[in-house]
Design a protein around this nucleic acid. Structure first.
Ligand code: MN
Ligand code: MN
Ligand code: ZN
Ligand code: ZN
Lengths: 135, 135
DNA sequence: TTGGTAATTTATAACCATTCTAAAGTAGAG
DNA sequence: CTCTACTTTAGAATGGTTATAAATTACCAA
């Protein structure tokens, strides 16, 4: 089963038809050796460079959101005017250089969070994210 | 030294003249028994209710940013369309209920973060923030 | 006190990432 | 191949935030 089939698989799982545009997005997202962080504008540049075709912003927004909702991408909880996404979907944390708007992964095993108090009013803990700001 | 003098002090320290509008903002921010989290729109409602006067958005944005820059308020690193501020300027962490857009403090002593890897490329760690999402 | 001047307030416009819209194009079942 | 539902796209709308510039106010010096 080659990469292409995986992309088709992913798109179908996200409830999306495997169109040319969506496959181009998947290639740029998932055919890389390393995971990476991106904004929509940055992804647009990457996909258009990789595929040598224009792609509309609307398609990028729609596809990225669908892939995120299906769990193939993560949205990163960072304040800022632009939203960051992550092709690393494993549980992990981040260094964040605000000046550069640049993220670096911290593997889950390389950080320890303990003594968590329990959530208020019978709420349940959904995730624990550590953000280490650096300068 | 009463509260008013403290407000004037804070404003002067932030490089701001103590005007009626800015003092009204300070009263609504710092005369409460408990610290709290707010968005600009929410603060506008609070200040206008407390002071029974209209206040422009621009003045709120400017004053809140100046107070933040001087360290009298904290901006909270949470993704979302609106920016959250915090009158609790001590080092602490947060529970966050995304559905309700509601924050609850976690005191620093009530959470333990260990084994932090060192920052990349000779960068320095500026802060370590834990965000616990709840549902 | 009184001007004079710089700071401030305000309404409104501009900005810009994101979402919405609706028309034109396309995929794929049958 | 045809039909229909889905998709793509350009452009408009949205909404929080920031910029602008005219009217107002604070406050120092005379
Ligand atoms: Mn989103
Ligand atoms: Mn800000
Ligand atoms: Zn990451
Ligand atoms: Zn807080």
């Amino acid at each position: 089963m080659d990469q292409l089939e995986f992309h088709i698989e992913r798109l179908r799982a996200a409830g999306l038809r495997p169109t040319k545009q969506r496959l181009a997005i998947c290639k740029s997202l998932f055919n890389k050796k390393e995971t990476f962080h991106f904004t929509i504008e940055k992804l647009k540049k990457i996909v258009e460079k990789d595929s040598r075709k224009k792609i509309s912003l609307a398609t990028l927004y729609n596809t990225v959101h669908s892939l995120k909702n299906r769990g193939y991408l993560k949205e990163i909880s960072i304040k800022g005017n632009k939203t960051f996404f992550d092709t690393n979907t494993k549980h992990h944390h981040h260094f964040y250089d605000e000046r550069m708007s640049q993220l670096v992964d911290i593997e889950d095993k390389n950080i320890l969070v303990g003594n968590l108090p329990k959530a208020p009013n019978g709420k349940k803990i959904k995730s624990v994210e550590v953000l280490v700001k650096i300068v």
